[in-house]
Nucleic acid binder design. Structure first.
Lengths: 139, 139
DNA sequence: AAAAAACAGTCAGTTAAACTGATTATATAT
DNA sequence: ATATATAATCAGTTTAACTGACTGTTTTTT
């Protein structure tokens, strides 16, 4: 084992790359990418969010968010309505069709993750998630 | 804690994004990005590699590799010489200047990683690395 | 109440990474 | 000797992300 592949950054990147590539393949029939799936998940978990809310939480640029939402709306997965309390912002909602997509791909996403994490035991995977959550919540 | 931020992919992505952003900032004065630093690390650990070797190991597209190496060569961090046993390929070597760059930023990289991983104990970080290496080596 | 500042979202245009497909020079297989 | 494969390169395309300007709306200041 050499220096260059000892870094967390390198290792994290490789594991993630693997997951993303596989997951993206499973999304092709739905014409969205992994990031858009993430946005949809967020909207599902945080109904009535504005585009700003999502941008901040997911750390995706506001102008990029416009096109993500445009895309999801065109495909009928998300609905934009003006927020009656602040007509500058939208109140975003997932549609039933969007919910179906989420559900139908959620299991697949988990399968992919388990596939990549296969070298770990149940307990190790549990620990890994614990660590990641601990890091993320303090970011 | 909700569904959308429970996935390994999401969490891995956030942690990595954090590390990469911070690390990239520290590389600005050297005019290279994190990926090029990775390439340089690889060449250092695997002297006489061809561009193909690096592409495969780091999973970076061969045509993209051309421009990375062009860039590193222009800056004097890497030297291309033809491989005498196969004149189609190059034999890439890090220069002393490249080695200096690696060394001077290696500690910084580790600082960044420790900073992001601060919420974990020493032991937990050790475990995390163990897990990641286990996964990566079976990819 | 009017004017100024701040804000959410949008859009046109730019930048940078990554890919496609073709090409050159060299090596290997038939 | 000929055909096939390979490493690197290049021109051109696609895509994600960003910059800066702009519209309409809300909040703050005077």
């Amino acid at each position: 084992m050499e220096k260059w592949n000892q870094s967390y950054g390198f290792l994290l990147g490789k594991v993630l790359q693997q997951m993303e590539t596989k997951f993206a393949e499973g999304l092709v029939p739905y014409h969205i990418n992994a990031r858009q799936y993430g946005v949809l998940l967020f909207i599902n978990g945080n109904p009535y969010s504005s585009q700003k809310d999502i941008s901040e939480n997911l750390q995706i640029d506001r102008t990029t968010m416009v096109s993500h939402i445009d895309h999801l709306e065109t495909l009928g997965f998300v609905e934009r309505t003006r927020n009656p309390n602040d007509r500058r912002s939208y109140s975003l909602m997932i549609t039933p069709k969007g919910k179906d997509l989420l559900d139908s791909r959620w299991e697949f996403l988990n399968d992919i993750e388990l596939e990549v994490l296969a070298p770990l035991s149940n307990q190790e995977r549990q620990l890994l998630k614990e660590f990641l959550i601990k890091i993320w919540t303090t970011l």
